[in-house]
């Protein structure tokens, strides 16, 4: 469903992604790990269309469609969801109104009617229970006054509500206590079905105790240095990332497929 070919991206003059090749099939869960500054968060944000990143080279196809030519909102309506590392507070924007607007936009894109307000409230309650979020938060402004853990649960709630085909989780596990981590992992596991794919960006192996990825990729200096199955994550936990630095092939614009 997702094909990434030789993706290069920059912020201003700084090159961050230097030729990523990567394929995700329907129903698969991929983990992207790597040291700080390796570009793993950039990768997730580039896929979601964050405007401060410039794609300088490469191609990304979502179900055969050119993802990079789509506005961020169109990507979301096509089924991409980014659970953000730093969810944004929106003072004055009510949580439930915000999510209803989002869901209606996605439904409209699919040719469906707007959701009835009562059905929406019921759905929101169900999804809220799933991530064990305090229902009072949904009557507040988006993320305003939420604790760090509540913000992450809120991201998973939004994901559960909008039912994306491709979920990108950008360090959703960071800063969570063990209960919140289990809830988040549980939310992700419930989302998984044969039609849906997940990309987990994480710095730690800890989340992978609860979510078992089909593939693990290590990103170093903007390229995939190594790919493997879930055992690779355990190896990284023990050995760190330095042993992989030497294995990176010399930087070349035509470097071959390092992952799939």
């Amino acid at each position: 469903m997702l094909e990434v070919h030789d993706l290069h991206a920059s912020v201003g003059e700084i090159k961050i992604l230097r030729g990523i090749n990567f394929t995700v099939k329907k129903g698969e869960t991929h983990a992207i790990m790597g040291p700080n500054g390796s570009g793993k968060s950039t990768f997730a944000n580039v896929l979601a269309g964050r405007p401060e990143y410039t794609v300088t080279k490469g191609e990304v196809l979502l179900d055969g469609k050119n993802l990079l030519s789509m506005e961020p909102d169109v990507r979301a309506r096509e089924g991409v969801f980014l659970a953000m590392q730093y969810p944004v507070e929106l003072p004055g924007v009510r949580y439930n109104q915000f999510l209803k607007a989002a869901l209606d936009a996605i439904r409209e894109h699919k040719g469906e009617d707007q959701i009835d307000i009562r059905a929406f409230n019921q759905l929101l309650k169900e999804k809220g229970d799933l991530v064990e979020i305090n229902p009072d938060l949904m009557r507040r402004n988006v993320n305003e006054g939420f604790s760090g853990g509540e913000k992450k649960r809120s991201e998973i709630l939004q994901m559960a509500l909008l039912e994306p085909h491709l979920a990108l989780l950008d360090e959703t596990d960071s800063g969570l206590d063990i209960d919140a981590l289990k809830t988040v992992a549980d939310g992700v596991n419930r989302l998984q079905d044969p039609e849906k794919s997940v990309i987990l960006v994480t710095h730690y192996q800890r989340l992978l105790n609860y979510i078992s990825p089909d593939f693990v990729h290590v990103l170093i200096d903007g390229k995939i240095a190594k790919s493997g199955d879930h055992k690779l994550a355990l190896e990284l936990e023990n050995k760190g990332y330095d042993w992989l630095r030497e294995t990176i092939p010399p930087v070349s614009e035509t470097s071959g497929e390092s992952a799939s």
Binding site: A48, G49, R50, P51, E71, P72, D73, R75, A76, R77, F81, L82, M84, P87, V88, L90, G92, V93, F98, L99, A101, A102, L103, A105, I106, H109, Q158, L162
Partner: peptide, 17 residues
């Protein structure tokens, strides 16, 4: 961007903000 990433189009996002 946060609003757009949830499917809300640019003009609606600006209007809401």
């Amino acid at each position: 961007f946060y609003m757009q990433s949830r499917g809300i189009d640019l003009l609606t996002a600006r209007r809401m903000l």
